[in-house]
Nucleic acid binder design. Structure first.
Length: 413
RNA sequence: GCGGGUAUAGCUCAGUCGGUUAGAGCACCUGGUUGUGGUCCAGGGGGUCGUCGGUUCGAAUCCGUCUACUCGCCCCA
């Protein structure tokens, strides 16, 4: 152990953070159920090849961001994203028999990156995958789910949806060739980053922020010119579906996703509120992925969202439940309070009872835990078989018979 | 991986030109009130001034180093 600091890029989720975090997860869990996506979980580590072969050897995630280790000769990697694991599980469990397969997942992901706001080395994603449907209906449904999820979090005004098509593989190859042919003569004028992109992933040059690059790109061939009829029709169908559902979007012809497995529909919900980490939810179609992993050819589409990024945007996180504070005074009351607390808790009411201390201290604690009422049990009350119930908001007190106490407190709601 | 900024109490931050015992607000504890919180009053605890090293008679303050955070690039959720 180097020190008492957490490992770089990792954070503790203290109870307040956790409540915010859980709010995001609860909302997507509920939305996913409405669309028929069932929650599942895959291991947080897999054989390294599960990621390296699917995400693309040259992608940044694989080439420099994986947490990989070796154990008994096995090469293991902490998952940097969720889709590869779901697809591996789909094949491992023979789920091709059960398409359409609709999965929702949530959990930690790991990428060895330089931490920034909204970017940690251990972070959390929620995501959905829809496997086995070739039709653009799948794209539309998955996007509708994303939009409803973000709406539920109250983010309608804060995020915008950008979509693009990467076409089928024939279209993409044709475009890639055209783009490389156009850029080659400019090779020496490109930024250093873009020179390597030209070899590794030329499409990404379209997204370059370098000014020199942008001038060159301005006259580059347009993707849509390389799209074949089938790809164009597919994209049209997706857009029409979004229009029909009233989901606003802008087409961004330069939107290119970093992972190799994407085709056809690619999309991102972005915000300007998080600095450089604008992408809050993103995904796309990956028709060739399952086959490339060795499964029967199965089309797929899905997305993932960053829980920490969403949590930073959400306000109006629900308050924690307000407990009932039990305040026994004296040995007789203590003896009574324990079973009473038990009874209230079994009745579904949250109870806070200080572990000792004078009445003043216990009242103070009732206040800090934001108790709704304090139930005071002292010798006077016991002699009358009553408890004093004090409303901590109004300060009003009343006597309640002990045998009606559970009912009276339940009635508070 | 590259470039900039920052680091003082649990939290948010002051701290003058390098000067002797490092401060405030909030939070916490005790008392004012033997059985009444949230307001008020009085008192109290809490610091290796991020780390290690250097300059100096003297360093929270100047210089270097490492670490963490942060902003941007790359990339991504």
């Amino acid at each position: 152990m180097a020190s008492l600091q957490p490992v770089r890029g990792t954070h503790d989720l203290l109870p307040d953070d956790m409540r915010r975090h859980q709010t995001v997860v609860d909302r997507i869990r509920r939305c996913a159920a409405l669309y028929g996506f069932e929650e599942m979980a895959t291991p947080i580590f897999e054989f390294t090849e599960v990621f390296s072969r699917t995400l693309g050897e040259t992608s940044d995630v694989v080439s420099k961001e994986m947490y990989t280790f070796e154990r008994s000769g096995d090469h293991i990697t902490l998952r940097p994203e969720g889709t590869a694991g779901i697809c591996r599980a789909f094949i491992s469990n023979g789920l091709a028999q059960q398409v359409p397969f609709k999965a929702f997942y949530q959990g930690p992901m790991f990428r060895y990156e330089r931490p920034q706001k909204g970017r940690q080395r251990q972070f959390h994603q929620v995501g959905v995958e829809l496997l086995g449907i070739e039709s653009p209906q799948a794209d539309i449904e998955v996007l509708a789910l994303a939009a409803q999820f973000l709406d539920t979090l109250g983010l309608q005004g804060q995020v915008t949806l950008e979509i693009n098509t990467l076409g089928d593989s024939a279209s993409r190859t044709a475009y890639r060739d055209a783009l490389v042919a156009y850029l080659m003569p400019f090779h020496d004028q490109l930024s250093e980053d873009s020179k390597t992109r030209l070899e590794k992933n030329p499409l990404r040059i379209l997204d370059s922020k370098d000014e020199g690059d942008r001038k060159i790109i301005a006259n580059a061939p347009v993707f849509s010119d390389s799209l074949n009829d089938a790809s164009l029709a597919f994209f049209e169908a997706v857009k029409q579906g979004l229009d029909a559902l009233g989901i606003a979007y802008t087409v961004n012809p330069r939107l290119v996703r970093g992972l190799d497995y994407y085709c056809h529909t690619a999309f991102e919900f972005t915000t300007t509120a998080l600095g450089a980490q604008g992408t809050v939810l993103a995904g796309g179609r990956y028709d060739g992925l399952i086959q490339s992993m060795g499964g029967t050819p199965t089309p797929g589409i899905g997305w993932a969202a960053g829980v920490e990024r969403l949590a930073m945007l959400v306000d109006g996180v629900p308050d924690k439940a307000r407990p009932i504070a039990l305040i026994p005074m004296g040995d007789a009351a203590e003896a009574l309070a324990l079973p009473l607390a038990n009874q209230l808790r079994r009745a579904g009411l949250p109870v806070d009872m200080a572990y000792g201390g004078a009445m003043k201290k216990r009242m103070k604690r009732a206040n800090t835990v934001n108790a709704r009422v304090a139930v005071i049990l002292g010798d006077d009350e016991l002699a009358r078989n009553e408890a004093t119930v004090r409303d901590l908001d109004s300060g009003e007190q009343s006597a309640v018979a002990l045998d009606g106490l559970v009912q009276a407190l339940t009635a508070l709601g």
